[in-house]
Each structure stands twice: as structure tokens, then as C-alpha cells.
Amino acid sequence: MRLLLWRHGRTTWNDIGRFQGHADPPLDDTGRAQVAAVAPLIRAMNPDVVVSSDLQRCRDTAAGLGLPFRADARLREVDLGRWSGLTGAEAAARYPEEDRAWRTGEDIPRGGGETYRDVARRAGELFDEVRAEQASAASTPDPLIVFVLHGGTARALIGRVLGMPPQLWWHFGPLANCRWSLLRLAEGGFRLTEHNAAPLLTGKVGRAGSGLSQALLPSQGAPTESDTEPVHLPK
């Protein structure tokens, strides 16, 4: 059994560095180009089931596969409460104690929202359900489950599936927009076999300047703190 975690394409909030959480900004032009470039590769892996976060940026990413999928709110990004919509600088100015705690690795409910443990609990519950469904169906010997989700949710779910303590989850670098992580079931449990994976693309799509080679450049698709992933500072 394999679990592929695919992060949504870029949004305008990603581009300008706003925390998203449960807010629902759509994909921007770059995000749509990313989906057009990457979706055929994931479709070619022949997913057995696709489940998306119910937020628009993930549903539009999942739709790019051209396959049936269902949406589930348990794959949403961590709820950031009052932090949602703020830039990193704004959050640090308004909530300095929370900002310092988060940046030193504390799993706190920023803005009155959720912790990453909360996210891992709800996303893990969904994974357990889908895993049981696929095991009972036994349609293929090595089924592929695709979750279309968010950076923080992916990190929390990776840690949970691997059985790692939450204080170590931040060691997983956050997924860039439209990149994926792959976990495979082996003897003894799941292993992380790919992380932050993406194709090396060249060529042009759409209007001038929206080439595939640009769609996944670090400056346009790299992890940003708008998706709640800090660069941890020493305590």
C-alpha cells in the first residue's frame, strides 16, 4: 500500500506570504500551471482512490487529475484562528508570544485554532478509514491512495503515519506548492520513500511567461510561512 500526499498549487496568498489556514483563496495563474504540469504524472501512477481537502485550492488541484475524487474536511490545513489572513510580520507584531513559541517548535493553537496534534488526529482518522476500505477491496496488490491537501496537514500526517513523536515533525521540510510525498507500507510499517518530489520541467504553457519551467521554480512554488511552516529558531 502507498500513500501519496500532494499539496495544492499556488494561491495569491502563498505568493504574498499570508497565512491561509481554513481560509479559501483560489489557485492563481501559477498554481493552475503547476497543476496542469504535475497532474498527468500523478494520474499515470494509477491512483486507486483520491481524497481532497474540501477547500477550493485543493479541490481544484484534485480536479486536474481528471479522476473521480471525494472531498473531506479532515484534510483541511491547520485552523489558524485569528492568524488567518495575516502576513508573517503582522502575526509576529500582533501575537509576539505565540509567534516566538511557534518558531521554537512548540505545538500551540495559534490564534485560538488547532495544534498539529489535532490535525494529525483528524487526518489520521481519515487515513485509517481509507486504508481499511482499500484493504477490504483488495482490487490491486499495491493500492495507491492519493490525498490532495495542505503543507501543514501533510507534515502532521507524515509524522503520524511513521509513528514519530510530534516534537520531531518539524524536521520534515514543508512541501512546496504542487509537490508530493510518498509513503510505502513495508515490513515493520510505513517508510517515507519520496519527499518534496516534483518533475524537472521545461517548455511553455499558456501565455508568455507562464512556462512549465517557471511553474515549479523555488521563487514561485517553494514552501512559504503562509502555509504555517516555520523556520525554527534555537530555543
Rank of each mutant, 00 (worst) to 15 (best):
G163M: 06
E97W: 01
P143M: 06
A156M: 03
S53I: 03
P218H: 04
S53V: 03
W13P: 12
N46Q: 08
F172N: 11
G9E: 00
R122P: 14
A138S: 12
D28W: 02
V119H: 01
R59H: 12
L27V: 05
Q167W: 11
K235P: 15
R103Y: 15
A215L: 02
G152V: 00
P141V: 08
A154F: 01
H195Y: 03
D107T: 02
R32N: 13
P109Y: 09
D99Q: 11
R103D: 03
N14C: 06
L216W: 07
S52P: 02
A186V: 13
T140A: 14
Q214P: 08
G64Y: 01
P143I: 09
L3V: 11
A89I: 00
L201I: 03
S84C: 04
T224K: 06
V205W: 15
A101I: 00
E187S: 12
G81D: 11
L233I: 13
A137T: 15
R43F: 08
R10T: 12
P96L: 12
G124D: 13
T202H: 12
A222W: 01
I42R: 05
G124L: 08
L144W: 04
G203A: 04
R59K: 06
G206Q: 09
Y95K: 00
T193G: 01
R121Q: 11
I158V: 11
S219M: 06
F69N: 03
G163S: 02
Q220M: 11
A137E: 12
K204I: 02
H22I: 08
E129M: 10
V161T: 12
K235G: 14
L162G: 10
T11I: 00
L4K: 00
D60N: 11
L75Q: 12
R10Q: 10
D15W: 08
L144G: 09
R57H: 01
R32T: 07
V161M: 01
T30A: 09
G112D: 08
D28G: 05
L212S: 10
L86C: 03
W6R: 01
L75G: 15
D54C: 07
A89P: 05
L4M: 09
R191G: 00
A138H: 14
P68V: 05
T202F: 12
I158R: 06
A101L: 14
D99F: 15
V38T: 06
A132Q: 13
L175V: 00
W170T: 04
L212V: 05
A37N: 06
A44G: 03
L75D: 01
N14S: 04
P96M: 10
V161K: 03
N14I: 00
F127G: 07
D118I: 03
P143E: 06
A89W: 13
R191P: 08
V50K: 05
Q34L: 11
G66V: 05
I158S: 01
N177S: 04
R207T: 15
G209Y: 13
T30F: 01
I16N: 11
Q56L: 10
S210T: 15
R18G: 14
F69R: 00
R57N: 03
W102S: 07
L217I: 04
M45V: 02
A39P: 04
F127V: 14
G9C: 01
R59S: 05
S84L: 00
A62S: 04
G159R: 10
